[in-house]
Nucleic acid binder design. Sequence first.
DNA 1: GAGAATATCCGAAACGTTTCGGACTACGGA
DNA 2: TCCGTAGTCCGAAACGTTTCGGATATTCTC
Lengths: 336, 336
Amino acid sequence: MATIKDIAKKAGVSITTVSRALNGYSDVNEDTRKKIIETAKSLNYSPNTIARSLVMKKSRTIGLLISGLMRESAKDNFMIEVMTGVNDFASQTDYDIVLFNTNSSKQREKTYTQLCRERKVDGVIIQGIRTDDPYLEEVVEGEIPCVLVDIPKIGRYAGYVSSDNAAGSFEAGNYLAEAGHTNIGMINGHEYAFVSKERLTGFQKAMMEKGISFQADHIENGDFTEESGERAALTLLERDPAITALFCASDLMAIGAMNGLRAKGYRIPEDISIVGYDNILLSRYVQPSLTTIAQDTHGLGYEAAKMLVDMLDHDGKPRRTLVKHELIVRNSSIMR
Amino acid sequence: MATIKDIAKKAGVSITTVSRALNGYSDVNEDTRKKIIETAKSLNYSPNTIARSLVMKKSRTIGLLISGLMRESAKDNFMIEVMTGVNDFASQTDYDIVLFNTNSSKQREKTYTQLCRERKVDGVIIQGIRTDDPYLEEVVEGEIPCVLVDIPKIGRYAGYVSSDNAAGSFEAGNYLAEAGHTNIGMINGHEYAFVSKERLTGFQKAMMEKGISFQADHIENGDFTEESGERAALTLLERDPAITALFCASDLMAIGAMNGLRAKGYRIPEDISIVGYDNILLSRYVQPSLTTIAQDTHGLGYEAAKMLVDMLDHDGKPRRTLVKHELIVRNSSIMR
DNA sequence: GAGAATATCCGAAACGTTTCGGACTACGGA
DNA sequence: TCCGTAGTCCGAAACGTTTCGGATATTCTC
């Protein structure tokens, strides 16, 4: 592997000059620069980024910390789309992305900041972390530039991007109310997700404004999976068989709910209207197709990467970025 | 950031000793080792992998080169599942994964090997590259340990993993023939994918063995997208309206075909049976659910990572690994 | 008690860059 | 003639590790 030294020797100049020539500095004669570039090519030289990182203290990589990037998660396009968003922006820059493995037990000995510092990423994008994660504070308070996806926390070096979950849920609630539903249940995510809280308050607000009674016994928590959605739907309808609509904090749970209810003989949307959240790929293909709140998932990742690079390259301040959301009415919900 | 030097100074030993203590060498007294480890902790030390990589000439990272990891590709779970497979294996090791950005025009100036050498990955997993990619040979012939997904080429440092596409297609053909179909069309992928060739020959073989005539005019090429599947299906049925079954080289094309045909008034499966390939997530949810050849996509990535790490850590030889495949009969196909 | 083996430690080089500070030449102006 | 300046170039240190070869002190063997 040819190094800068080899070039220097072959071209008959010093190491310094080679470095400066290759990096476009002005104090090197154009002729020598030409010669250097040519010999570099002839030696099939490519720079050693590791050596460069060591002295520059910059690795030009950003870490992508996706907790739960596992086999099962392929169903949920959410994190995949976030990832492609990150990748799409990163490919416009010269940052590379390194995937952190966080699921293994081995990693749990190390805090996130340790992970980042060891791998010497310049910054990190974090997605899917739970609010009860012991290391969340550490990374928000820490010194490593970081942007969180769907976790509304801002620190000295930490910004976040999310959609307006409260507003989205508000729209969902509004829509159901205006469709004539007056007895509505909600299947929320677990309490350790920030989005759960926001989606609940947004929905509650809509109910209140529409003068619809909405009590705690009409809320059931799942964990964002299909099965939990099914379970929650059944307990809700057992508790109050007069429910005519269900708002679910994730599409996957909504799909689970649909399956569970249909198995019990309920017709959707005739008996029960279902509204989901996320607009995952499946929601369009499932039967009946799912009414849902779409968020710009790709944008989530894209904006996260953008903010991070801005912090890294232009000394940008960490901030809050919201991506747009939108109610998509399909066939799982109906006027009453 | 505390370095090994700081530890050495504080603990009153040499740099060498600190290094050897931390790395578990035997020629350091247990007491001093304890002291060193303690001071390391007290200084909140974490090793600088970059410096280590520089001297060891190993970065403990593997590159993941997925051409076309973009927004659109989220629909096709294929590469996502491959990726989680890679990630799942990697998380058992201490290798990290770096994602290479290959879609941008900027990158195209650089060959894959240049990319790899610059980023100093120890090895690379390549997926989704086309057979007409000018750099394919370079990487197969090259010196960088590499394993290809779904590209049957072996080199000095290059192995591959795929499923037996010919056998899978053979089964598909066999199944359709035994279901009583005698006039069958095929929608293949574009000619620049290895799998296309294999799937065609496997299917042809089945047709021949069953004594079914299968001519070139019953084959139409798409490019693995939904739209191309739709287009291909329509031309095939225009050309020969007596066709009763379609074998598609990808689920996405199969889904496109179903939509296109249904729009033209064909009933599926009553009028036309459809068989896909890949068993992507959607195939289970689409209506009617899709009969397809499942490959162990997750296994593809998992085995690729396994082979690569074996080559890297245990001097394993590059080889060929096949993952299993399986015919999954659902509701898009029917006995005649 | 001498020599050998063992246990424990350390100095210094090396990995491939970047960059600070200075050095040398040639040339113009006073 | 001398000085200042611009244009080019280079030596050497620095980044944070690992590791080779050796040094010293201690223990063992006969």
